[in-house]
Nucleic acid binder design. Structure first.
Lengths: 344, 344
DNA sequence: TGCGAATTCGGGAACGGTTTCGGGAACGGT
DNA sequence: ACCGTTCCCGAAACCGTTCCCGAATTCGCA
């Protein structure tokens, strides 16, 4: 049984004034006498009144709530990004509702519908790997709900975007493998419908060609962004007649799967195979050998996305031009890629 | 600019009927003619009308939302438990709002206040390690918002509780270390104000005494449930004149910190020190050597907590007796504790 | 034919706030 | 004495929906 909360009407009754007066007194309006204000505020506090946000939402058609869709909150990259969003949101009086797409397009669609129904004020999203059609985000925007993408952004949707320089990160990672003497460098890419996958792939390719190394199709395979995919692809790569001596994985989760597979197969890292991942999850440094990785500022990405979204929400009339903020990644070199330089 | 959603009133205007009629037609009331129903439903669909849940909430004083407070969503144990909660909640038409206490009492307090203000229908919570006073949960219940605890339960608060058999899990883990020939078994306990910490400590103690092993105070230290604490305590334990040859850590996060410290210090696991953790996080199996751990059914715990809470919410009048569901834990033995049996 | 009972629908209150409008009283100035 | 301000406050509309209460029309049956 839900106990009735005390309302403005109840205060008005006890003080024998109108509810308008109570409302104004609590909002410290100038057209209420100091004395009445004091009486109202005192009673409100003693009754420990708190205004009903639902009534406010109905009135203003605003919920003071941000939606956020990520593929998986158990992924540390996303959970810390969510932390960044919450950090900003709380400080500006908003709350966040967290949705998981579980890398499913259908689920993502259902989430956006729910967000529209729930009248959330805005959405921050990192799209699922199975999403090819982005119309549901456009629809949301047409309903007046602004959308900001982070990490896995939609290229076809005009909006604010926050991402890291995937191309540059991948380029540097690959260049690092080259500089450590790797000759046969493979890449395990992410799903091709995500722009981050394509950019990281391009970074890998350009680094090789720029160093005069021939691209070989058999050394580029694709995987979901998870551990099982990494393991599977590693088995596939190491079974090649021309096996790689360096692997750049498009994510740490993939790299962890590779790491596991290489140990299973008896390869030594970095001597037999040098390995680099992407994201620098905190667990990556705990592996043996510790994993080299391209670090992304996940918390800051969440903060920035939230800031952009809130500005969009609160600047009613002025639809400033959409911008894409590109944060810098940072290659963290650990033992998994520190192959001895024999030749040099 | 938020576009006005189409309302029941708009449909009524276009069809020249009253809004009551529209409302009833959409709810398939028997007192509306089939023909009118059809007209209303058709127009509603073509306008792609969806009812405003905020208005409903105001009317019913129900939000169809569950609150959930965990110390940290980046902890895989909690994020999978949240997955279990969502699984049940979605299927019963509820949404979940996720809060993080960050192991802070003040933050937990602020979260419960926000939950009360937001008129959430019920709360699922695993309390923070710094929480000693549980009055805020009682207050919530007095306001008619039911509370269900999981994992880190409150002993002083009457309510449904879902937990694993911490005592038995700890007992078995310790007994396992004994059976592998460990003579000097230390325990890194969690914060003493959490019942799980105390129960796991008791399991450790009882296993030792039951096998005629003397308890030594210096071998029981306490730590926060995180990696840094584990590392610190491991340094402390290994510095003892009488250093342990087996360590049972109260959580995997602590155990991972110990794991790291032991490798830093040059100890071999399990030969020099055998190690067992608690929770069986997925990363634990990736460590080298893989970590033995007491597995908890985290997803099922979330499901069960949600089921109990929803039953509580929807059974208006009948306040059935509160129950504590104790799920069984499961010792997973891996290399970190598989010390060779020399003597036997 | 007349009358009670269905059938079908509209009016309005209610949920808990904010806000527009207006009005009474006090007050000051001429 | 009269009028214009200013200060305080109340009445009522409004947000979107449900639901209670009537009410009009039709229908069935005696």
């Amino acid at each position: 049984m839900r106990k009735a909360s005390i309302t403005i009407k109840e205060i008005a009754r006890q003080l024998d004034v109108s509810k308008s007066t109570v409302s104004r007194a609590l909002r410290d309006s100038s057209e209420i006498s100091e004395e009445t204000k004091k009486r109202v505020i005192e009673l409100a506090e003693s009754l420990n009144y708190s205004p009903n946000p639902i009534a406010l939402s109905l009135l203003r058609n605003r919920t003071q709530t941000l939606g956020i869709i990520v593929p998986d909150i158990a992924n540390p990259f996303f959970s810390t990004a969510i932390g960044g969003v919450e950090d900003i949101a709380y400080s500006r009086g908003y709350h966040t509702m967290i949705y998981q797409s579980h890398e499913s397009y259908e689920r993502e669609l259902a989430d956006t519908r729910h967000i529209a129904m729930r009248r959330v004020d805005g959405l921050i999203v990192s799209i699922s790997s199975q999403t090819e059609n982005h119309d549901h985000f456009i629809e949301l925007q047409e309903q007046g709900i602004p959308v900001v993408f982070f990490d896995r952004v939609s290229e076809s949707t005009p909006s604010h975007k926050v991402r890291v320089d995937d191309y540059k990160g991948a380029f540097e990672a690959t260049e690092h493998l080259i500089s450590r003497g790797c000759k046969n460098i493979a890449h395990i890419a992410g799903p091709a419908n995500l722009s981050i996958s394509r950019n990281r792939l391009r970074g890998y390719q350009d680094a090789l060609t720029q160093h005069g190394i021939e691209l070989r199709d058999e050394w580029v395979v694709s995987s979901e962004y998870n551990q099982a995919g990494g393991t599977e692809r590693a088995y596939q790569l190491m079974a090649l007649r021309n096996r790689p001596d360096g692997i750049f994985a498009a994510s740490d989760r993939i790299a962890i799967g590779v790491h596991w597979a290489l140990r299973q197969l008896g390869y030594r890292m970095p001597d037999d195979v040098a390995l680099v991942g992407f994201s620098d999850l905190s667990i990556s440094s705990l592996l043996d050998p510790p994993l080299s990785s391209v670090a992304q500022p996940s918390f800051e990405m969440g903060q920035l996305a939230a800031t952009l979204l809130l500005d969009l929400i609160e600047s009613k009339g002025t639809p400033a031009a959409f911008e894409t903020r590109v944060l810098t990644s940072n290659l963290i070199i650990r033992k998994s890629s520190m192959k001895d330089l024999v030749g040099n």
